[in-house]
Write a protein that binds this DNA or RNA. Sequence first.
DNA 1: TGTACATCAGTGAACGCGCGTTCACTGATGTAC
DNA 2: TGTACATCAGTGAACGCGCGTTCACTGATGTAC
Lengths: 209, 209
Amino acid sequence: MPVRQVRKSHSYHHGDLRDALVASARAILEREGLDALSLRETARRAGVSQAAPYHHFADKQALLAAVAAKGFEELTAAMQSRMELESVPLARFTATGVGYVAFATRYPALFALMFGGIVEKLSSDPDLLTASVCAYNVLQDAARHALSSEGRSEADLPMTSLTAWSLVHGLSKLILEAEVSPANYGVKTSEELAALMLGKTVAGDKLTY
Amino acid sequence: MPVRQVRKSHSYHHGDLRDALVASARAILEREGLDALSLRETARRAGVSQAAPYHHFADKQALLAAVAAKGFEELTAAMQSRMELESVPLARFTATGVGYVAFATRYPALFALMFGGIVEKLSSDPDLLTASVCAYNVLQDAARHALSSEGRSEADLPMTSLTAWSLVHGLSKLILEAEVSPANYGVKTSEELAALMLGKTVAGDKLTY
DNA sequence: TGTACATCAGTGAACGCGCGTTCACTGATGTAC
DNA sequence: TGTACATCAGTGAACGCGCGTTCACTGATGTAC
């Protein structure tokens, strides 16, 4: 006997409305953008009345926080899966960056929600905080291994991580918001551009920052 | 005889409402943030009826575009004034980056307006396009001189500029939106953090990207 | 096994809100004669 | 120099809109007995 009822059709109760609302919000984000993301529209998409979400989220901000947390989980997975394609520490490190840019440019509105200052609860929502810290840790762990494989001091870790994060975060935002186009740099996709840029910061198998 | 009437008090006509509206919008941005920036509130602050702005701007977007254009002019000035404090090409280059971060973190909401995808007319408003291109040119010119002073090929210019831009843009956004704090890196201000980061990408008087 | 009942996830109507924009208007200005 | 008039930057009331949120409610569910 399942603890949680799963999607019984024609039932008065929904089954798993919370997840469905997060999914609806996500769908609106990707199809219509951030401006179109309202609680009412989210409820509409989930086939439920406008008041229903209040049984699962305290307010709109709480829904947004849940969507953002989901985004950070996916970002973590995107970075990890790229990293696992490589074996050399330095290549694994740059792969996390390529994964970051690939995720950002594939889900622009979600990325904007995660980093655009829209979610006010960043630090107060524990799930969201955890998810975002996890994502950062992927990058930082990869940086740690890269540094140690080059015999460099662990004292460099914070700045090396911050520099890498700035590079990929900045590139992502510039592609999304400042009309930077991979085509202007002789490549087709944003991940190729990220790989190209990160490659320039590596000289003779050595990390330059 | 002045072509344009300047601020006659108690006059029915305002004198220079267009500039006053841009200034009001700017003030709202800095004090209350982007969410509080409405056409009505802007008119209120300028001491004028809610319909008055329509004699100077086609719609809200046009006002936003004007504010953003002003922002790019100030960003250009901020980068230039930093650069002019230095004489060595490489130092002048990194100085533009420090100026960029200083501007971004001093005027967070304005910076968000300039780069947050809020202004839809980025490419269609010629003043805005010009202003943003000017800002980019400061950075690119500094990069060109830095490269040439090191005897490197001008072919590297696009990627070097993009890398520098990504670094400073990313750092700015991370400070503003991801709770990155200069204090965690042993410095007090965001410009010190920028200088520290950019310094790490320079090894033995050589640019590493 | 059957029934009473507490629980709680839904409903749908309503609230007040500030917004962007439009409209017919009016007062001030500068200019042609 | 004085006056008629075109121009245009203002006014203030009104429009419709979708929003977040609240409310009393109702139907479905699981459980104690």
